[in-house]
């Protein structure tokens, strides 16, 4: 339950907190986006821990955030592609 998650997080260092949240979020994200799960989890871990806890509790919110992250990632990769062409 949430109490267990919150108390486990509270006893961990900030870096461990992000790692734990990542370990919990990763399989959920992997189910939605198998190929991009590592990058999307990395993106979402930049959010506040309190927001990440909400995502863990709400599959709909997580699904929405993952869609949002994929859009940002694709836009970013498109930009990087253009940059690479410029360099070449």
């Amino acid at each position: 339950g949430r109490c267990l998650i919150a108390s486990t997080l509270a006893s961990a260092s900030p870096e461990d907190q992000k790692k734990m949240l990542g370990e919990w979020l990763f399989p959920l994200i992997q189910a939605l986006q198998p190929t991009l799960a590592s990058k999307i989890t990395g993106m979402l871990l930049e959010m506040d821990n309190s927001e990440l806890l909400l995502l863990l509790e709400s599959p709909e919110s997580l699904c929405y955030k993952v869609d949002e992250a994929v859009a940002v990632l694709e836009a970013c990769q498109a930009q990087q592609g253009k940059l690479a062409k410029c360099i070449i």
Partner: peptide, 26 residues
């Protein structure tokens, strides 16, 4: 316009220590 965005986002892999915070100045 930010050159550091090339390596963004940091990837998370289960079982591997998370390094993402090192990219963020407190």
């Amino acid at each position: 316009s930010n050159g550091s965005s090339i390596n963004w986002p940091p990837e998370f892999h289960p079982g591997v220590p998370w390094k993402g915070l090192q990219n963020i100045d407190p």
